[in-house]
């Protein structure tokens, strides 16, 4: 690990003022510290943003929740209003990592964690995300848990966050503060597809600080389901955050987002559009899934994700319908 200067910021202004190209903001550190030890990240300066006044969850009069970026993952899942209104968000966060890590990790850090692609994490190998222009060995190499949607010739990585998948389904907004002032970035615009610049995960400007996430109210039952290679404490193969308003057997409204399939949480809008107004049947759900997955381009060893994603859409929505 390269030696670094460590500073604690008390305010967002202070954090911004100290941030340069070689600076990283430090939240819980559960991903950043690992990446520093692996040599993937070599910041000259860490600005600790955990003491910023971003550690509260506020209920707005609109019914929206404003979740501070420094809120610990476990505090998010313990919060009564979040538990009451957003089961899929709670379940998503609880299905990620371990109890220990959730106590340390912050909401902002969770959003900004990096892919767990093997090649990205191994500095002795090429990786366009880590070192642009060096190539992507995953395309012909080991990629059984990499992307099927939205990937490019330069990168097939997936985004590892569970929480972000739920936030995508919730139409959340990421609130930031940068040199140009404050921004509210819809989650749909927050994460990027890799294209020819896989080194950029998000649309954040250099130095821009995530201060909070705003979650609008959602009056539908919801749930998060994650499939992985052991029963707990593993990253998703495919996961789904889903919500549905089903009345008289008809889908009035729904939200579907997939995890583990793309460089960003994958909001399945085509599937949603297909379902709205249709009876909640296995057939319609399968049709909706197929609409969404028609754009998929599985790699040599990850075509199973198509079927897995399809089955999760069908099953999860049916289960939500049964509850209605």
């Amino acid at each position: 690990m390269r030696p670094f200067a460590y500073e604690r910021a008390a305010t967002a202004e202070e954090a911004l003022a100290r941030c340069d190209e070689e600076t990283r903001y430090l939240g819980g550190g559960t991903n950043l510290v690992d990446l520093m030890r692996l040599g993937v990240e070599r910041p000259a300066r860490l600005v600790d943003v955990t003491r910023l006044p971003h550690d509260r969850i506020e209920e707005r009069s609109s019914g929206a929740l404003r979740i501070g970026a420094a809120v610990r993952n476990s505090d998010l899942t313990a919060h009564p209003a979040v538990r009451r209104h957003h089961p899929m968000l709670v379940q998503a966060v609880l299905s990620g990592a371990s109890g220990q890590i959730r106590n340390q990790a912050t909401v902002g850090g969770n959003l900004l964690q990096r892919t767990r692609c093997s090649y990205f994490q191994d500095i002795t190998k090429p990786c366009n995300k880590r070192e642009p222009g060096t190539g992507c060995p995953a395309i012909d190499g080991e990629h059984h848990n990499l992307a099927i949607l939205g990937h490019s010739e330069s990168c097939v990585a997936t985004h590892p966050s569970d929480m972000a998948v739920a936030l995508a389904a919730l139409d959340a907004t990421v609130l930031t503060r940068g040199r140009g002032g404050e921004r509210a970035i819809p989650l749909a615009d927050f994460y990027r597809l890799p294209g020819s610049h896989p080194e950029r995960d998000t649309t954040l400007e250099p130095g821009e600080l995530v201060t909070a996430v705003e979650v609008p109210p959602l009056a539908m039952p919801s749930r998060y389901r994650k499939v992985r290679e052991r029963a707990s404490f593993a990253f998703a193969l495919v996961s789904i955050a889903a919500a549905a308003d089903v009345r008289d057997g008809v889908v009035r409204d729904c939200r579907i987002a997939l995890g583990g399939v793309a460089h960003r949480p994958w909001r399945a809008r085509r599937a949603e559009d297909h379902l709205r107004g249709r009876p909640l049947t296995r057939e319609n759900l399968a049709g909706a899934a197929d609409q969404e997955l028609a754009a998929a381009h599985p790699l040599r060893d990850n075509a199973y994700k198509l079927r897995l994603a399809r089955n999760l859409i069908v099953r999860t929505l049916l289960e939500l319908g049964e509850r209605a």
């Binding site: 460590y6 604690r8 690992d34 476990s74 890590i101 106590n103 340390q104």
Partner: peptide, 13 residues
Amino acid sequence: GRRANACLALAVA
């Protein structure tokens, strides 16, 4: 007071 992984916690923080 909370369980945490000491390996991921920078001591300086």
